[in-house]
């Protein structure tokens, strides 16, 4: 899976990520851990790779990282921010 590239613009500001979704004309933001995942999702990634990114960045247990990555992916999917080929 990876982030949708059409109609979505995003950049990091002070460790958070601000996202402009032109399809819904809304701004969204993530916290620091969300930014870690957003950076990874600029390329095609598996859930395991995203969880590994959280473990590496924050030293949290792998099972917690997996659960948190899955929850965040669900949020992105709900907002239609992932590439449609992944849905």
């Amino acid at each position: 899976m990876k982030l949708r590239t059409t109609g979505v613009s995003w950049r990091e500001i002070d460790g958070e990520t601000v996202i402009l979704d032109l399809s819904s004309s809304t701004y969204l933001k993530t916290n620091a851990a969300g930014s870690t995942i957003m950076r990874l999702l600029a390329e095609d990634r598996t859930t395991a790779e995203l969880a590994d990114g959280l473990v590496e960045a924050y030293g949290i247990p792998a099972d917690q990282a997996t659960a948190d990555a899955e929850t965040f992916i669900a949020m992105l999917r709900e907002r239609n921010l992932l590439d449609s080929a992944d849905s």
Partner: peptide, 24 residues
């Protein structure tokens, strides 16, 4: 770095924030 689970939240609409920026 202290860890908080990833969050995604809406800040507002483009229109709302454009108006705010003027006192896209």
């Amino acid at each position: 770095m202290a860890y908080e689970a990833p969050t995604l939240e809406e800040i507002g609409s483009v229109r709302e924030l454009t108006l705010a920026a003027s006192g896209l």
